[in-house]
């Protein structure tokens, strides 16, 4: 069996599989199905300073090989996480990535300050609307990406910062560079692609919010291209995700330059997805005689 440990910004992940934000809660529910200490890490549900109720239902729809969601960042607030969920996750011995969001630059700074030193990584979800910029997401333009990254980074003394890029943008390379120059220690991508599903009988969008974020197997080609672009435009580590459902998907993302990956929607299709994908990844490595998973990172041979 290959050595699966990956080290990103000084944080050790016992394997490169991280549960993706919003699909795995704070780990408790999946831990009822299997011992989640087998996975490399968890990115928590997106948290805000104050508790949030989220969007009306329906919050989810299905397309072919994809799903759409608009949960609207329902979460119990960061204080609740620190008191109630963090102790549980700590005892699991997996890397804890706190996914955070805000409505203003100050929100991002404040929530980072609260979590500094308590978790292994902070992941900035910058796909949320900036209320002061007329609701345009923080993560669209390089200028605001740099600024939100810098604000977050200046509130952090101990915990490394991961910036999660949105795919609904003009240029992944420019946005990745903006995060790097704002002080990001690493980058993760992709967040969901904005989409729509329509109920023809009612002639309305299926999701109450009208639009939703598209994820799942069908988005993998787009995600792979974007991860490749990001990994080749910055020097900091990149964590890839988008449609990963099996071991060879993990290998593909790592060949494209990802140092680790996140698994989201696949958890809904198969509640045991992560342990299964881990076993499949191992098999592939063994079959190819690879002793250390880090060896395959960024070894894609372009035509």
């Amino acid at each position: 069996m290959a050595d699966l440990n990956v080290n990103i910004c000084g944080v050790n992940f016992k394997n490169p599989l991280i549960a993706a934000s919003g699909t795995f809660g704070f780990g408790r529910e999946y831990d009822e199905i299997y011992d989640i200490s087998v996975i490399g890490g968890i990115s928590t549900k997106g948290m805000t300073l104050e508790p949030r109720q989220g969007n009306p239902v329906p919050r989810i729809a299905e397309g072919r090989s994809v799903i759409l969601n608009a949960v609207g960042l329902q979460n119990p607030g960061v204080e609740h996480f620190i008191k109630y969920d963090l102790p549980f996750l700590k005892q699991k011995g997996i890397a804890i990535v706190a996914n955070v969001a805000g409505k203003t630059f100050d929100d991002y700074g404040a929530i980072c300050a609260k979590l500094d030193g308590l978790v292994d990584f902070i992941e900035l979800n910058i796909s949320c609307p900036n209320v002061k910029a007329g609701g345009m997401a923080f993560g669209i333009k390089p200028e605001s990406i740099k600024e939100v990254t810098r604000t977050a980074k200046s509130s952090l003394r101990k915990t490394p910062l991961m910036v999660k890029l949105s795919p609904n943008v003009e240029s992944i390379p420019l946005n990745a560079q903006a995060a790097q120059s704002g002080g990001a220690d690493c980058i993760s991508l992709i967040n969901t692609l904005t989409g729509m599903a329509i109920d023809v009988e009612r002639r309305t969008p299926v999701i109450a919010n009208n639009t939703g974020g598209v994820s799942g197997a069908g988005i993998k080609p787009v995600a792979l291209r974007m991860v490749y672009e990001a990994a080749h435009s910055v020097d900091i580590p990149v964590i890839g995700m988008g449609g990963i459902t099996c071991g060879t998907d993990v290998i593909e993302f790592m060949l494209a330059g990802a140092r680790a990956v996140q698994v989201g929607t696949a958890n809904f299709t198969d509640a045991n997805a992560m342990p299964r994908i881990l076993a499949e990844t191992n098999l592939w490595l063994d079959r190819h005689g690879i002793k250390n998973i880090n060896e395959i990172v960024d070894t894609l041979k372009l035509n």
């Binding site: 919003g22 699909t23 795995f24 809660g25 408790r28 529910e29 999946y30 009822e32 199905i33 549900k45 989220g54 239902v57 329906p58 919050r59 989810i60 729809a61 799903i67 969601n69 949960v71 329902q74 979460n75 958890n267 809904f268 509640a271």
Partner: peptide, 14 residues
Amino acid sequence: ERMGCGIGACLVCV
């Protein structure tokens, strides 16, 4: 209600 995970993790089915 429409569901994602079915086990309480994704907050889709509230």
